[in-house]
Write a protein that binds this DNA or RNA. Structure first.
Length: 113
DNA sequence: TTGCTGACCGACG
DNA sequence: CCGTCGGCCAGCA
């Protein structure tokens, strides 16, 4: 495990495991990491992810309501929506349609990583 | 070193 | 039903 056990690194690993055309929520990642209440840190980690050399599909991470709360951090209000649409996800008004259909739960899919 | 902030979520009144 | 507050961890002034 070359994992540094850092919260950021763990978030990166989970986000990178998100399949194409799927999305997850901050709370799901936080819960998977064992810190349910640290959902805010997940977003903060993703904030640092854009400074990272690796391309993190942060556009696949939205809030529990499927709302693209972090779209403003992509350097454009429409970037995140366009990226999700290019993956076959219907986004309207900054919100994912049928979000539960695209929802990807790391604790279920990864089963403990 | 202390304190505030942050891409959230859930509980409480 | 809707508004408000606390909690979680890390980075920055």
């Amino acid at each position: 495990m070359e994992n540094k056990n850092g919260f950021f690194e763990q978030v990166y690993q989970v986000v990178l495991q998100i399949p194409y055309g799927r999305v997850t929520s901050y709370g799901a990642i936080a819960a998977y990491l064992g810190s349910k209440g640290s959902a805010r840190m997940v977003g903060w980690a993703l904030n640092s992810s854009r400074f990272s050399k690796v391309s993190i599909p942060a556009h696949r991470v939205v809030n529990q309501a499927g709302l693209l709360t972090g779209k403003r951090h992509f350097g454009g209000q429409d970037i995140m929506e366009e990226l999700l649409r290019s993956e076959g996800i219907t986004v309207e008004g900054g919100q994912i349609m049928n979000m539960e259909h695209y929802f990807w739960d790391p604790s279920k899919e990864l089963e403990g990583y």
